[in-house]
């Protein structure tokens, strides 16, 4: 156990990096994914086309390739993120937004059409109908799939290890190199750190799901 206290600073900062990567890119993905879902159900054809293009691009590209592009590819366009960490947040956020969009869209499709009709009949516009009637109901039905997306995102943060962000998986590589005789213990510690993020999430998702359920 000696190595844990020897490396507590590294482990702690790696854990915080993984957590903040997941939370920040999760927020980006949630907001962007919701906007994309709204675009995909809007009556405006160019908006629908743009959102569909975005979703298909990011959903069908390996996350590692997205990282490569945002870290190295955009340099050719004279663009660069201020840090590797922000590049990682952007890559994870954009990639995950595609999945959030599709989850939210499935929720929108699950709202009975009569709900939106009733809102329109009252004189609510498209945006008002979406934000006050459709999305609040859609989100309630997509808590479980959004939970999946969140847990996948928490684990996908490990890709950032390959792009100079010292999160948990990067710490794992470093510690297994320096503590070759204790590899199993290193693995156990790192896995435990991921579980500290994902297991409470799974529990929180169940609680939220029960709390917001709509009686129909």
């Amino acid at each position: 156990m000696q190595f844990i206290s020897d490396n507590s600073d590294l482990l702690w900062s790696a854990f915080l990096t993984t957590l903040s990567l997941a939370v920040l890119s999760g927020l980006v993905a949630l907001v962007l994914g919701t906007v994309l879902a709204a675009m995909r159900v809007s009556p405006v054809l160019p908006l629908r086309g743009l959102a569909t293009f975005f979703v298909e691009t990011f959903r069908n590209t390996p996350l590692t390739v997205v990282f490569f592009f945002l870290v190295f590819g955009i340099v050719q366009l004279d663009l660069q993120f201020p840090s590797r960490f922000t590049a990682a947040v952007a890559a994870l956020g954009l990639y995950t937004a595609a999945f959030v969009c599709e989850a939210v869209r499935s929720g929108i499709n699950a709202v009975p059409p009569g709900q939106a009709e009733a809102a329109r009949a009252l004189g609510l516009g498209f945006g008002q109908t979406l934000t006050t009637v459709v999305l609040p109901q859609a989100f309630r039905t997509v808590v479980p799939p959004l939970g999946n997306v969140w847990i996948a995102l928490a684990k996908n943060t490990s890709i950032a290890a390959g792009f100079a962000t010292t999160e948990l998986t990067a710490a794992l590589q470093r510690l297994t190199n320096s503590n070759g005789n204790q590899i199993l213990l290193v693995f156990a510690v790192i896995v435990l750190a991921y579980l500290v993020i994902t297991l409470p999430s799974a529990w929180a998702i169940r609680v939220i799901e029960r709390k917001v359920a709509i009686i129909r």
Binding site: Q115, E117, R120, L122, G123, L124
Partner: peptide, 30 residues
């Protein structure tokens, strides 16, 4: 549409809102 009231076969009350909120929504939002 706000001047034309509509009552549907399947009621279409907003499932996530209370009865009172259902009746208040139009006057407040529109």
């Amino acid at each position: 549409r706000s001047d034309v009231g509509m009552v549907f076969q399947s009621f279409n009350l907003f499932a996530h809102k209370t009865i009172l909120e259902n009746v208040m929504l139009g006057p407040v939002k529109v």
